Simulated scan of single mutants.
Amino acid sequence: MSATSGSTSDTTRTRRRLATAGFHLGAGTLSALWLLPIALVLVTSVRTFDDIAANGLGGLPHSFTLDGFRQAWVDGGQQRALINSMLVTVPTVLATLALASMAAFALSRYELPLRRTLLLLMLGGNLLPPQILLIPVSRISETLGLYDTLYALIGVQIGFGVGFYVFVLYGFMRSIPVEIQQAAVIDGASPWQIYSRIVLPLTKPALAALSALSFTWIFNDLLWAITVLRTDSRMPITASLIGLQGQYVSMWNVIAAGSVIAAAPTVAVFLRFQRHFVAGLNLGAVK
């Protein structure tokens, strides 16, 4: 019996080892395939045009230069485009989260009429495909005199983002014990004091995760930028990449350098808030 038991145990351990090795092999292969295009872009960005023309995009690099970054940054207008992106992204993230946190606080901590209906409307608005709203949004911005301005893009991003953030923050704030609020009311705290001094500090993990997510979404947006903007000097960096490709056509080192510049801010934000990204996957899960 003991010999049979030992043989079964060895077989189980062997199977587990094989399963673990297979998992790591598969995960490593998928990771390599995912990282390969990124590595190709990085290598291409530091090669010269003559090197790429002579050896091809997939060939081994025979040169190293940062001139592609200079051309993309100065001649290609990436500097101006990056400033435009930051002028849109930072105020939008701050304004959207401020509005969403106040709305979520009111909906989660007080018995407001039609509370569930409002939440469903906010969530339903985010389920609409943006393509069917392109023409209405463009016409509205023209009517308001905001077309081809960064204010129009900021307004659109706030309008389409606040509903989702309210829904997420609502679930997080609902998990905060009501006894904390009741104790603050007994001490004479006003609703604004409860929101700013008690609930908001407790919601910092959720706000940090949403800040990183919203920064990535807004900074990388292309659809709304080309819908409400027309002048090249006002385009954010994602839209400027299209112009960069048209300007330099086959100069892949410049185009790759522009792509690296465009990706750098979001990568930096992700690395800074990566643990909040993981925590953000569970936001709103607690009823």
Results as ranks from 00 to 15, higher is better:
L99V: 15
G28Q: 09
G188P: 08
S138L: 07
P129H: 11
G161Y: 05
V46E: 00
V46Y: 01
P113F: 12
A257R: 08
L202V: 00
A256D: 01
A209H: 05
Q71L: 14
L202H: 13
V156C: 08
L213P: 07
E142Q: 14
M102L: 15
L114M: 15
V267A: 14
V74T: 05
T65I: 09
D148Q: 07
A39R: 08
N126S: 15
G171V: 10
V168H: 09
L223N: 06
R109A: 07
I132E: 08
N126C: 14
G6P: 10
A209V: 09
L223I: 13
I158F: 11
S214I: 02
T216H: 12
S7H: 09
G77I: 00
T238N: 06
F49E: 11
A104V: 09
S101E: 01
R234L: 13
L121Q: 06
L150I: 07
A32G: 05
G125M: 02
A257G: 10
A212N: 10
R15S: 12
R230N: 14
S190Y: 08
L127D: 00
A263W: 07
I38H: 13
A3E: 12
R230M: 06
L33M: 11
I140T: 03
L36V: 03
T203Q: 04
V228H: 11
A81Q: 06
L118I: 10
I218L: 10
S250C: 03
I176K: 02
F219H: 14
I135G: 05
L210E: 06
P201R: 13
